[in-house]
Amino acid sequence: MELKILTSNSTLPVLNALIPAYEQATGNKVTLSADSAKAMVTRIRGGETGDVIVLGSGAVKELAAAGFIAAASRRPFARAVVGVGVRSGTPHPDISSVDAFRKTLLAAKSIAHTVHGASGMYIPTLLEKLGIAEQMKPKTVTRPGGYIGKVVVGGEAEIALQQIPELLAVAGLDCVGPVPEAVQKSFETSIALFSASPHAAAAQAMVDFFANPANTPLFRQKGLEHVPQAAH
């Protein structure tokens, strides 16, 4: 049996790590497709479907209300926060306080973030909270989606701002740490079944497999807080 998961870029690394053990335990095969949060919602509303979705909790709730997702199957999956990334081998900037973080961004030659990813859509608000939105506009590099750390590794920007699991997924990039708590935002993802899944029982068993608390260290390794809760 082959199952299909649709997800966003922030949870792609942990799913890539979880799936081999699931496939070995069950003999089932899993196809995984990822995109930016906004693009994935557009794809699903456009008719694309699968067996399991792992996406921002707000988006999953909206898709359930629209009938694409089996509402009763929704459960929390993971949480992530925004972090700062720099090219490996370069000095790690000071982000230990809001003031230090503000000074680091103002001193940077350039920063980079996505436009349609969950954290990317938050970065303009973060810069406004710091009171430096206008100063940062001329030196901000953006991409529609994907791992923005690749832009930094490629030398097109000095600092990457994105969810920590996405920073950790980029070779040649160091995750300096999370942004200060006062300007931080937590992103929760949910996991659920597609209403049209022809393999609902197997899909639910896969969701239960991922929810096993034994997987928590793997989530942590990938920069996520595991939320192994019951269906709600």
Rank of each mutant, 00 (worst) to 15 (best):
G50D: 06
V52R: 00
V54P: 05
V86I: 13
A100C: 08
G50I: 06
K29A: 14
K29E: 13
S73Y: 10
I132Q: 01
V60A: 15
I44F: 08
D35L: 10
A112I: 10
T31K: 08
K137L: 13
V84C: 08
V84D: 04
A34H: 04
G120F: 04
H113K: 03
V86E: 04
R43P: 00
T42L: 09
P138V: 12
P93G: 05
G117L: 01
A70K: 14
A78E: 12
A59W: 05
A78D: 13
G117Y: 01
R45H: 02
G120K: 01
K129W: 00
P124G: 06
K139F: 11
F101C: 05
G83Q: 07
P76T: 11
E128D: 15
R87K: 15
V52L: 07
L130D: 04
P124W: 03
M121F: 02
H113A: 09
T142C: 08
T114S: 14
S110Y: 09
Y122Q: 06
A64V: 10
T31W: 00
A108T: 09
I123T: 12
S97A: 12
A100F: 06
I132T: 08
A66V: 08
A59E: 15
T42P: 00
E62N: 14
V86K: 01
G67V: 13
A100G: 07
M121S: 14
V84E: 05
